[in-house]
Nucleic acid binder design. Sequence first.
DNA 1: AACACGTGGCG
DNA 2: TCGCCAAGTGT
Length: 328
Amino acid sequence: MSDTPLAPSPAPLSSAPVPPAPAPPAPLLSGPVLSAPLLSAPLLSARIIDWFASSGRALPWREPGFPAWGILVSEFMLQQTPVARVIPRLAEWLERWPTPGALASVPPGEAVRAWANLGYPRRALWLHAAAVTITERHDGVVPQGVDDLLALPGVGDYTARAVSVFAYGHRHPVVDTNTRRVIARAIDGNQEPAPPSNSRDLAAMDRLLPESVEDARVFNAGAMELGAIVCTARAPKCGECPIADACAWRLAGYPAYEGKRKAVQKKYEGSDRHVRGLIMAELRAAHVPVTRAEIDSLWPDAVQRERALAGLVADGLAVNAETGYVLP
DNA sequence: AACACGTGGCG
DNA sequence: TCGCCAAGTGT
């Protein structure tokens, strides 16, 4: 299946993802990029809401009655970690620590250990610290307001809004990387969004947000879901998209992205992050202090090794005990 | 604003 | 194979 005689191969303008399967659309717009949706906002949101009801995934945190604490934990775990890897860890976590108070009562290192290989272990530390704050300052109840949530460590603008909306049903725009891509394509006619700008992105989402509190919640989730499983970064499935006929990017003929490229992710192999990861894996696995000798055996370059270890200590992820290093 | 920060799966 | 990407946050 290596030869594709049918491939039209029209001079690749860039390395941009090939326009989705059902090749370029029928009528191309000749004019400039649109500044408003072709579909009225209510019509567009209704399409996404209906599509979400029929095609959205049944994820744990979408189950009726899923606790606010569970939503908060899931949002922490989902920061830069794929859904499939989060699901089993989340279940374990909530079984062990069903409330913020339960988590707050154990040392932070326990949270880091249970975080396992989800990546970015500082999130486990932040989640533990958030549980402590919730326990001490909010009577053990996850706060509902965006400002209170924002004050928690590790909770930024996305997570604060997501919890307020998905756990409590408040009406706010929620913008994540998926939503940004959907808006960039469907509304702005661009393959990729411009670099994130909080005020701009929230305003854009706010213009589409249904008035009804319940519709707004579902629309927020639906826009994210659409970006996650249909309007994907690499090979969007426009054939499955509920708003394909109104998509500005599609109607413009899938122009390649022109704007600023997002910084290329630095190579992981051999990086400081790599070394930190090796040390953290060792600390998680050990139930007695990890000796210097053991740490030294993890990575040959002493300078880089020390930098990584010092960084972990500075971040509070490792503690220098009498006989070696331990989780906090 | 640009970068650091883990880990693994997929095309 | 290897670069891109994944429900971001903090500095």
